[in-house]
Amino acid sequence: MSEDTAADASAIEEHRPHLLAVGYRLLGSRADAEDAVQDAWVRWDRLGPEGRAAVRDVRAWLSTAVARLCLDRVRSAPARRESYVGPWLPEPLLTTGPDDVLDAVVAAADVRMATMLVLEHLTPDQRVALVLHDSVGLGFDEVGVVLGTTAPAARQLAHRGRRRVREAAGAGELPVPVGAPEQRRVLDAFLAALAAADVAALVAVLHPDAALRTDGGGVVKAARRVVRGHEKIARLLVALLEEAGPELLADVRPVTVNGEVGMIFPSSPPMVGVLTVADGRAVAVDVVMTPEKLRA
């Protein structure tokens, strides 16, 4: 490897967590985000030494490249979601500690499940404009170039996206994050109630307006609609546990998923769940079961 190539690879690695966060927030897929980062490196390499030397802000250039590579997939996502079987959830990001690049991704941007689901309700161009301006820090001139529109139009797109996020927060769809100890307390209570098949205890740990989403992608058996209400969720979870047998919980272990407390079920098929906690109770239980989303 030449010195120039090594320096280029070093530049990509330096910004890799940030770039993965950009791609993930746009696509909701770690694998697709990694592909976009790799393709951005190829474009960076093709600039040649003189072209790279002329780039004033490497991070911004790479962020723009990743966004452009993601744009077609972002714009086609609504059509793919229309044909998706059951609730859609983003690919979960399981992190293991400060040496894990994904831990840096979670720290670099708000990629909580609740936030990702709110972003899914934006138009594709609103999502790109909001992420590139508010999270990446690109100016609206640059955002407009990525979207193929003017700076004022890009500003308006970001404004509309931001307004939708505020509305979601006001409606309780985007609860204020709570600390890890509080999240873990709720998770422990949730798993204890589940292990005991105690409907009343589950009801107590769930918010009355809680939502349960199970993403099976039409490949794994899962609820086809979002289940709402703590009593409905509690009864359904206990019924599913009775059907699956106690071995489902035998090896369950707590993990960090998208920066929040979660759990991994090393069953067949495996499952990853995450709780969104607010006011001392779980307001959302999201379970990813689609094998393609769990390969990583």
Rank of each mutant, 00 (worst) to 15 (best):
D4A: 15
A11L: 13
E13S: 14
E14A: 12
H15Y: 14
R16T: 01
H18V: 06
H18R: 14
V22I: 15
Y24T: 12
R25K: 15
S29W: 11
R30E: 15
V37N: 09
Q38R: 15
R59F: 09
A60K: 13
L62H: 06
S63Y: 05
T64N: 01
V66D: 02
V66I: 10
R73A: 15
S76N: 07
A77W: 05
A79Y: 00
R80T: 09
W88C: 04
P90E: 14
D100G: 08
V101R: 13
V105N: 06
V106F: 03
V106S: 04
A114E: 14
E120P: 01
L122W: 04
R127L: 08
G137R: 11
L138V: 10
E142T: 07
T149E: 06
T150W: 02
A154Q: 02
R162D: 09
V165C: 07
V165Y: 03
A168W: 05
A168D: 05
A169F: 02
G170L: 14
G172T: 10
A180E: 14
P181G: 04
Q183N: 08
R184L: 15
R185H: 12
L187H: 14
A189L: 14
V199F: 05
A200M: 03
V203G: 06
H207W: 02
A210I: 06
A211S: 13
D215N: 04
D215W: 00
D215E: 09
G216C: 06
R224M: 12
V226S: 02
V227D: 04
G229K: 12
H230D: 15
K232H: 15
I233F: 11
A234N: 08
G245L: 02
E247A: 13
E260I: 04
G262Y: 03
I264K: 10
F265S: 09
V272P: 01
V274M: 12
V277P: 02
A278P: 01
D279W: 02
G280M: 12
V283A: 10
D286A: 09
T290D: 00
K293A: 11
A296F: 15
